[in-house]
């Protein structure tokens, strides 16, 4: 059973006919172009100075590369701070969440206890709570804890998202009970069963969970906007949005920042592509 986790099935179920294949490729080419074109366009914008940006007809590929936008980004803004903050906070949340979610998932998947049904259905219902509706009370709670403008303000509330528990639970449920019984009979405590058996056997689930948790934090905007006022403590999304609030918008600077902001997640994507694309992401929804 555990051997199936993370494996992909055969891609093509029925041999498609030539017209179907032709239409499919046309559609996919179009989609690929639409997906990638904006990235290429801001790449070209980011190496233009402001004047040539507004020239018409436009210079698609600038003859002379202009690095001023990037220089300005690193010298005059806190871009490096924002990047560090984003990665640091994202990683902290990912690690903490992985541990506590896996523990809870094991409990819900394989242990018997009174109140299990109530707890798991409460957690499941919480998925439907729009987080945006909680920012005002959360703002005051975090303020009263004295955590506004700290990393903790971003890390701690993120640990309350229950979605990952259900993803991991679906991985643990698919492990045979006998394996766990066997370990218990072999003298293992519940903690040893958890760390030596469950965690290694759901490793692909853990990576999927980690990837999604990190991505969710990386894309987060509203809560950091509310909870962090100090410019150097901002995350990338909020930091870059603040570039636009100047009276005269420096589009070159924004294009450079937007483009660079895609780099960390792109590196992660290339490294862990298999898990981003994993079919198991659907189980996150189905719980």
């Amino acid at each position: 059973m555990w051997k199936l986790i993370g494996k992909q099935r055969n891609v093509v179920s029925l041999r498609p006919t030539p017209p179907v294949i032709t239409v499919s490729y046309s559609v996919l080419f179009l989609a690929a172009i639409v997906s990638i074109l904006p990235f290429l366009y801001i790449l070209s914008t980011s190496v233009k100075d402001t004047q040539s940006l507004f020239s018409y007809p436009p210079e698609w590929i600038p003859e002379q590369l202009f690095w001023g936008n990037y220089v300005k980004l690193f010298q005059e803004t806190s871009f490096l701070n924002w990047t560090f903050n984003t990665i640091f906070i994202g990683l902290s949340i990912t690690i903490l969440k992985l541990i506590i979610d896996a523990m809870a998932a094991y409990s819900l998947a394989k242990l018997q206890f009174i109140g299990k049904h109530i707890i798991s259905s409460t957690l499941l219902m919480a998925v439907a709570i729009p987080v945006a509706a909680l920012i005002i009370p959360l703002f005051f709670i975090v303020r009263d804890m004295g955590l506004l403008n700290t990393y903790w303000a971003l890390i701690l509330p993120a640990l309350a998202n229950p979605l990952g528990i259900f993803l991991l639970r679906s991985f643990i449920v698919s492990l045979p009970d006998e394996l766990i019984h066997s370990a218990r009979l072999d003298g293992a405590s519940e903690w040893r069963v958890f760390t030596q058996l469950i965690l290694p056997l759901i490793s692909s689930g853990l990576v999927v969970h980690a990837v999604f948790t990190f991505m969710l934090q990386y894309t987060n905007f509203l809560w950091p906007l509310v909870a962090i006022q100090t410019e150097t403590r901002q995350v990338l999304t909020v930091g870059i949005s603040s570039l636009k609030s100047n009276f005269v918008v420096d589009w070159g600077l924004i294009s450079a920042a937007s483009l660079l902001a895609t780099i960390p997640i792109t590196i992660l994507f290339i490294a862990l592509q298999r898990f981003f694309l994993a079919q198991s992401l659907s189980s996150a929804l189905k719980g």
């Binding site: 997906s35 990638i36 904006p38 990235f39 991505m215 990386y218 894309t219 987060n220 905007f221 990338l236 999304t237 870059i240 949005s241 937007s258 902001a261 895609t262 997640i265 792109t266 994507f269 981003f276």
Partner: peptide, 9 residues
């Protein structure tokens, strides 16, 4: 790939 990007970006 576009899905990876924050909606803000």
């Amino acid at each position: 790939y576009p899905t990876l990007q924050p909606i803000l970006i």
